[in-house]
Design a protein around this nucleic acid. Structure first.
Lengths: 124, 124
DNA sequence: CCGAATCCGTGACGATACTG
DNA sequence: CAGTATCGTCACGGATTCGG
């Protein structure tokens, strides 16, 4: 008797799976973490999420906007200024994603140790 | 005064980022959720994580094994039997990833509504 | 028969250059 | 400054074959 609720996300036809796919994504996670402090403009976001390309950041933000997780504020100025912020829905993501980020930092030493011993076991 | 701890995962050179990348991944999330009930053999895992190919499941499990999140039990039988289970480290992932899965299911209707209104706004 | 390796196409990613 | 366009590369994912 598997006591788990058997999560619908596991079935390929379930729409909630597309939602999981969006959220269980490294760029999404980092963007949401960055925006959880407060709204940010594109350039600062690009600097904070170190290593992301302009193109991929744009695509990530578009997808998040489409899913109702961030909103896009365009200011008709020169130079142009565009700011992004989490929606109410996006803020509900803060806790789960923050937990994931904390996990990554808290357990990185164990992960690195596991990798080292695994690699040592594989190619001697 | 950004009160956030400024998460090292955001910097490209930080090792914890590789850990986040592994964990913030849709297949990883689904496999960990599946294994959180109890250990499972390959074939059942493949059936539970609906839509994953044999190859991708193998690779995902190898990566998780390398990172010390699952262990692999091979039984020298015929037909062959290979079982996977979460390590102690892997079980610490259960809560964060389960939270993500719950989020996906709890908010899917909002996400779908957002998508619909976004698409309606874009291509009239 | 089950688990996994091989081959191969597609699509995502990243770098660069260019426009409003 | 905030994107878009184009292109080369490569990892992901699917179909098939191998191995035990």
């Amino acid at each position: 008797m598997p006591e788990l609720p058997a999560f619908d996300v596991m079935t390929a036809t379930c729409p909630s799976r597309t939602s999981l796919a969006r959220v269980a994504n490294k760029w999404t996670a980092m963007v949401v973490i960055a925006l959880s402090a407060d709204r940010m403009r594109f350039r600062d976001l690009r600097a904070t999420v170190d290593g992301i390309s302009s193109k991929v950041l744009t695509e990530t933000l578009r997808d998040l906007e489409r899913d109702g997780i961030v909103t896009r504020h365009v200011y008709a100025e020169v130079p142009p200024r565009v700011e992004y912020e989490l929606t109410a829905l996006g803020r509900t993501l803060h806790a789960p994603i923050h937990a994931l980020g904390s996990w990554a930092e808290d357990h990185i030493s164990e992960v690195l140790a596991a990798r080292e011993s695994y690699d040592a076991r594989q190619c001697p």
